[in-house]
């Protein structure tokens, strides 16, 4: 949990029955850093995270934690080193915040053992770190989305592990998204907790990650510092989207400005694109948009 554990995937092939989702993927998670995994829908981000936390056995390849295959480690031992917050965990009806956060202590408890002082201390620390101490006796059902997400993070914090988070900011307002990411940064800087998270928002990923992994079609397309990884070319390959990258005036990190079909950049690169005839006409008027025909592989692109 303190930046000393090494998590890596070697030649990982993952899938559900015959459907291969991730193929031959290699990934080394930098210890003590924040790693963000980005990529289009269904590119295998969540599947990768599930496998790295042992929820899904690889069809081939391996996930190593400090050189040991996690799929042959005892479940509780792994859970003392690596915690996962899935995309949509379920909260039992009526459960209180402190009770839920306490569930995170399970890997540290033996069969039938009694609750110990250090369990309470870990719960208290997790509540405090996530700013949920005041909510401790409230029922989860009564909380707002942002509060609830903080409580879930408190639960994995009580586990006292490195963290894997699957889209921790989904369904949150932008202020709550930033709040959650700030919290994770606090943890990383303060505790040295290694964090791996799947994020949808490219700009927030670039802002908060030390290490950015861009996935496309079940492989790592590019990985490294956000400034190196996030280029117009990578965004084009990974998302099938034209974009312009500028420097974020706040952080200096890359900021992705997507270019849709209706907004264009430079009239000199007009092409014969567009789905409907009307579109084509307008495109012609406006000079089209900057996209090369052979790159029209975006899944979202309408067909004529």
């Amino acid at each position: 949990m303190t930046g000393t554990h090494r998590l890596e995937a070697n030649g990982l092939t993952l899938g559900y029955r015959d459907r291969i989702v991730v193929e031959g993927l290699d990934l080394a998670v930098p210890p003590g850093r924040i790693t963000a995994v980005v990529g289009a829908n269904a590119c295998g981000k969540s599947t990768l995270l599930r496998s790295m936390s042992r929820l899904l056995a690889p069809q081939s390849g391996q996930v190593l934690l400090d050189g040991r295959q996690i799929h042959s480690m005892p479940a509780k031992e792994l859970a003392r080193t690596l915690g996962l917050l899935p995309q949509s965990p379920l909260a039992p009806e009526g459960i209180t915040v402190a009770d839920l956060v306490g569930r995170g202590r399970h890997p540290h408890q033996r069969l039938l053992s009694r609750w110990r002082q250090e369990d309470d201390a870990a719960v208290a620390a997790a509540l405090e770190a996530t700013g949920t101490t005041e909510l401790a006796d409230r029922a989860i059902d009564e909380l707002s989305g942002g509060q609830r997400q903080r409580v879930w993070i408190a639960m994995v914090l009580a586990q006292q592990t490195d963290l894997l988070l699957d889209e921790p900011t989904t369904f949150l307002d932008v202020n709550h998204q930033v709040e959650v990411l700030d919290l994770l940064t606090d943890l990383n800087r303060g505790r040295g907790t290694t964090i791996v998270m799947v994020l949808h928002d490219l700009n927030l990923a670039a802002r908060y990650a030390d290490h950015l992994v861009a996935m496309a079609a079940g492989r790592v397309h590019a990985a490294g510092a956000p400034g190196e990884v996030l280029t117009a070319g990578v965004v084009r390959t990974v998302f099938g989207l034209e974009s312009r990258i500028v420097a974020d005036p706040v952080s200096g990190r890359p900021l992705v400005l997507p270019i849709g079909r209706h907004h264009t950049e430079g009239a000199d690169r007009a092409g014969e694109h567009g789905a409907a005839a009307g579109m084509r006409e307008r495109d012609a008027l406006q000079g089209g948009y900057a996209r090369q025909p052979e790159e029209r592989s975006s899944p979202g692109e309408p067909e004529a």
Binding site: D120, A124, D137, G190, R191
Partner: peptide, 20 residues
């Protein structure tokens, strides 16, 4: 604030114990 992440103040631990 980060120090608070490492360990909770004892009175908070006491409150957690109490509520449990």
């Amino acid at each position: 604030r980060e120090r608070g992440i490492l360990a909770a103040p004892p009175e908070l631990t006491g409150a957690v114990t109490h509520s449990r």
